[in-house]
């Protein structure tokens, strides 16, 4: 959070943020405090409860005996608690799937974003519409035909096939993020490179890529956690328990109380934590990236 405060500024208004006009106070103070408290409770409680559950004794969890305060002393035993579910195996699978999705998606996105930003060509509007419209297609409606397609291609029940399917859903947003980033780079720099003797593809790899690295990083985080969180395709495509990503693995415990819930919650916490940390690091870029991707059709 320290870095966030050091650069508390969005792309929108670097210099205006600190100036707070008193006219902005729309609510009286007690009302404001009350509403903020309600919001914090609403947003924060479920996460707190997840931690609390993970740190509870299994026996406390039933018959409404769960305490309101977490047993911090159980933090040390958490490793053993988690050990009862094969979460590390699943997290590794998640990592492979998310990593593969990110890599493949970014390669497509950098190339396509460059074309959309810098070239005029016949069919550009159609390509733009394709990239715009496909990000609106519901995953769940496509899962049936993609399942049928992958079944006939023999791509089911493997992480490779899952990565291929994920990329189709994550790539369009990345394209728009990269396009927006390249749009913001002065064109003269590319022209200078062309005069210096750079072929197009070298301009992209040698000059533009380093310049848009922050946006690439943001797109990478978005892609990675899309892959990390993805559930539906993974659940549909992968039947074998050992190949499950953590999302499918953890979902298998919902409504099933054979495995002790504190273990499940601890595992879920482990699954959630990387997403939270990365999100806090690149939050602003994610927000501007996502909206830019969808707004600039």
């Amino acid at each position: 959070m320290a870095t966030q405060e050091a650069h508390p500024v969005t792309e929108h208004a670097p210099h205006k943020r600190r100036l707070k006009a008193p006219g902005k106070r729309n609510f009286s103070k007690p009302v404001r405090v009350l509403m903020l408290a309600a919001l914090v409770l609403f947003s924060g409680f479920p996460l707190y409860w997840m931690l609390n559950t993970a740190l509870s004794q299994d026996s406390e969890l039933y018959g409404q005996a769960q305490g309101w305060w977490p047993h911090w002393e159980r933090l040390a035993d958490l490793g053993d608690v988690i050990g009862t579910v094969p979460i590390f195996k699943w997290l590794t699978n998640s990592m492979v799937i998310a990593g593969g999705t990110t890599l493949l998606s970014l390669i497509f996105a950098v190339l396509a974003g460059y074309a959309l930003s810098r070239f005029k060509f016949y069919g550009k509007g159609a390509a733009g519409f394709l990239l715009f419209a496909t990000q609106m297609l519901p995953e769940a409606l496509l899962v049936v035909p993609i399942y049928a397609l992958f079944a006939s291609l023999g791509l089911l029940n493997g992480m490779g096939g899952l990565i291929l399917a994920n990329v189709a859903f994550t790539m369009p947003v990345s394209v728009w993020i990269i396009k927006g980033a390249i749009d913001a780079i002065p064109y003269e720099i590319e022209e200078a490179a062309a005069v210096d003797g750079c072929p197009r593809v070298t301009i992209l790899s040698l000059v533009l890529t380093p310049l848009i690295l922050p946006s690439i990083a943001a797109a990478a985080v978005i892609n990675f956690f899309d892959g990390w969180n993805e559930f539906l395709l993974a659940k549909t495509f992968i039947a074998e328990r050992d190949l499950w990503p953590a999302s499918v693995g953890l979902a298998s415990f919902i409504g099933q109380y054979l495995t002790s819930l504190n273990s499940v919650m601890a595992a879920a916490l482990l699954f959630t934590l990387p997403a939270l940390i990365f999100f806090l690091l690149v939050q602003r870029r994610i927000v501007s990236g996502l909206t830019a991707g969808s707004v600039k059709g």
Binding site: W49, T53, S247, G255, A268, A275
Partner: peptide, 25 residues
């Protein structure tokens, strides 16, 4: 800053984890 962080966090919580928490709640 901290209030904003708390209110923002749920968005980053994976859907499956969200479902787990709420099904327990």
């Amino acid at each position: 800053t901290i209030v904003r962080a708390i209110i923002t966090l749920p968005w980053a919580v994976p859907t499956v984890a969200t479902a787990l928490i709420f099904s327990w709640i």
